[in-house]
Simulated scan of single mutants.
Amino acid sequence: MVRVPDGACEIEISNLELIAACWGPRIGDHVVSRIAARLREAGLAIELDAKSGRFRILGSMQNGRAPSQDRLADLSYRLTAESISIEAITGEPGAAVHAVMTWRNDEPPRYRGARDPGEGWFALYRNDMQLAAQSLRCADEGRMTVCWQAVCDYRDPSRTLYHEGLVRLDEPGAGLSPAAIFPALERTGTATTFDWAMVRHVMDELRAHPDAVLGVNISASSAHLNGWWRGILSELAERPDLAARLVVEITETEPITHIHDAIAFARALRAVGATLALDDFGAGFTSIRQLMDLVPALVKIDGLFLQRATRDGEPCQSLPHLIGLIRELGGTVIVEGVETQAMADLAFVSGAIWQQGYYHGYPEAVRSGSGHGEPMSRLVSGKS
């Protein structure tokens, strides 16, 4: 959180400059007015710097007290999730933007460094914002479906480690595939807000189904102890039965820019009894050093390694070497992208008992065999 000298606090629209550059200053002013109105509706007295999009929070209108960090963080994520229509100004049907509210010293959106129109960043940002707006609208309107894919034991596929939640969005004709939406969410700075919605959904599932062990993906930008995670971790500390059944997977689509924050986040997850996993390892930004720093219980090797090993005519050593290294560092290995019997066999002889992929089951809206009846800590320790 950004602190001002007298102890008050500030939040800002971190992408205001980008919005004004892409859609014009009138749209920028409209976004600022909308956020100011929403803050006042929330009962906060504010001072506004309209040019920079910064809001100085003076306190509650009722008692003058400054809002707690948890309340301010929750409000910031809720405001980021709200779609701001610009259709009446632009004349474009369904046109909308999202104000990315920053309440701490976050990294700025990636596009902030790109200013050469020749690079086409105007068009890229507009397209990314459209994808982000459609994705968040689907989540808000209940048109977000979570399908579940099992992580299975090769020796007994009916034995499930957990089910990973995979998002499907219902927006006909919009092309909202995971490969399209998640990079757009990352680039526009809205990924953490989308993660917030997903984590809440998975927590609801855990409360409703006491035998379920579920995994949720978050971006690297969400791996910190600020904001909405504080409330989630407090609940997990009070509900060890929930924590023991939650797997948090950090994806590698973006680099971990604040490694110390991520380390503190990993320690906090372990402290409450939840399980940390690194997803798509080997195909993204996570390094061996970060693997050693974060100490995840589970490491999911990207399916690319298995595909290469399957294609090679000669025995491939890279996959068993990688599996061996991860096990030496204390992690339990899951090989992703298992699509055939031959791939399952190869992953197993390379050292991977736990596997995930179409061969073991397609993502489905209804989970089967969701409970394994054994503690996660025992299953990932190699003693089972």
Rank of each mutant, 00 (worst) to 15 (best):
V199Y: 01
D140P: 05
V2Q: 15
E186I: 06
G231N: 08
D156W: 13
T340S: 11
S83D: 08
E374W: 11
C138L: 09
A36N: 11
A352N: 06
L124Q: 14
A184Y: 07
H258D: 12
L48G: 07
S83E: 07
P5G: 06
T340C: 10
S222I: 00
Q69F: 14
S85F: 00
A244P: 14
P375Y: 08
A344S: 08
S219M: 10
M1G: 09
A81T: 00
V247K: 04
L131K: 02
M101S: 01
P25L: 05
L236V: 08
R168N: 14
H98M: 03
M1H: 15
V100H: 01
D211L: 11
G303H: 08
A139C: 08
C138M: 12
E17T: 12
V338E: 09
E12H: 02
W196G: 00
E119C: 12
V199I: 07
T145V: 13
P296N: 07
L276W: 11
A174Q: 05
P93R: 03
C147T: 09
I27E: 05
R267G: 15
I218N: 01
R159G: 15
V349F: 15
F265C: 05
F182P: 02
A208G: 03
E171Q: 08
I323T: 04
V4K: 06
E17Y: 15
I181Y: 14
D6G: 01
G331N: 05
A365S: 13
L304E: 06
D70Q: 06
S381D: 02
A133S: 12
E92R: 10
A268R: 07
A50I: 04
G227F: 01
S14E: 10
I46V: 12
H98I: 00
C152Q: 09
D153G: 10
G24M: 13
E171V: 10
V199P: 01
G113S: 15
K51W: 15
F182V: 00
